[in-house]
């Protein structure tokens, strides 16, 4: 049971890190954003995991519930907010990527950097 009790956290940590790795190491801008979503999704799992109560139910009063145990509603509220923040960031990031593609005709960071370097040299 000791192992099971931490399994959720460990998976969350590993997911977090695979997303984080994609953000740092990948050079494709869309892939970076996908990594960022993965990174954030793992944090959602971390929060929701700590809100679970053994033998509890979703925190909604039903007619039959006199002596119910509820799971913690607060992390759920926080994560609802965080999910919305996440999709907002992704949408804005994608708009920037689309504009980048139109201006540079590539979405690979290395190629963009190369073009920028040439431009910097040309302007000096």
């Amino acid at each position: 049971m000791e192992f099971l009790g931490l399994y959720n956290y460990w998976i969350a940590v590993v997911l977090l890190m695979s997303g984080f790795y994609a953000v740092i190491a990948k050079r494709n801008l869309v892939k970076k954003l996908i990594g960022l979503s993965l990174f954030q999704a793992a944090v959602f799992l971390l929060y929701i995991t700590m809100g679970k109560v053994e033998g509890g139910t979703a925190p909604i009063f039903t007619s039959a519930s006199a002596e119910q145990i509820f799971s913690n509603p607060l992390p759920q509220v926080l994560i609802l907010t965080a999910i919305v923040v996440g999709i907002s960031t992704t949408a804005l990031g994608l708009a920037i990527v689309v504009r980048t593609k139109e201006e540079y005709s590539t979405i690979e960071e290395d190629e963009i950097q190369q073009m920028d370097c040439q431009e910097n040299v040309a302007s000096e």
């Binding site: 977090l16 920037i96 980048t100 201006e103 960071e109 963009i112």
Partner: peptide, 26 residues
């Protein structure tokens, strides 16, 4: 046009920063 890659970098690093903060608060 160089504003676009600059702001993308800011967006990625800023979001990592905010998510780290969120982990810490959690």
């Amino acid at each position: 046009r160089r504003a676009l890659p600059a702001v993308f970098k800011y967006l990625v690093m800023g979001t990592i920063g905010a998510t780290f903060y969120l982990i810490g608060v959690g």
